[in-house]
């Protein structure tokens, strides 16, 4: 089939794989990428529960504004779309029950 927009995914070279944990689960990632990207790629879309109704939420604006993607690192709430993956990082969610 003719493609006017070619699939270039095979040409992308990423830094070597590292791991971090999200609520204890191992997440493969590449150091230096955004936490949100790594979480999305590994299927972790549900990052927090909305405080008022408990509904599932995840990254939305991808630019550090909406605060939907926030997670906790070393006790501090951070935007996962702006946080960088480092090897061994322990990330926890803002879910009501985990």
């Amino acid at each position: 089939m003719i493609r006017l927009v070619r699939d270039q995914s095979a040409q992308i070279k990423r830094a070597s794989e590292v791991r971090f944990t999200f609520d204890g689960a191992q997440v493969p990632a590449h150091s230096g990428e955004s936490l949100l990207a790594a979480l999305i790629r590994s299927g972790h879309l549900h990052l927090r529960d909305a405080p008022e109704d408990g509904a599932a939420r995840g990254g939305f604006c991808c630019m550090g504004l909406c605060q939907e993607c926030v997670v906790r690192i070393e006790g501090q709430v951070v935007e996962s779309c702006r946080a960088m993956v480092t090897s061994g990082l322990a990330v926890t969610s803002l879910k009501a029950r985990t």
């Binding site: 270039q8 040409q11 992308i12 070279k13 990423r14 830094a15 990632a29 590449h30 150091s31 230096g32 990428e33 955004s34 990207a37 960088m84 993956v85």
Partner: peptide
Amino acid sequence: RSAAILDAP
């Protein structure tokens, strides 16, 4: 691009 991307088209 983030530092994780070493090369890309």
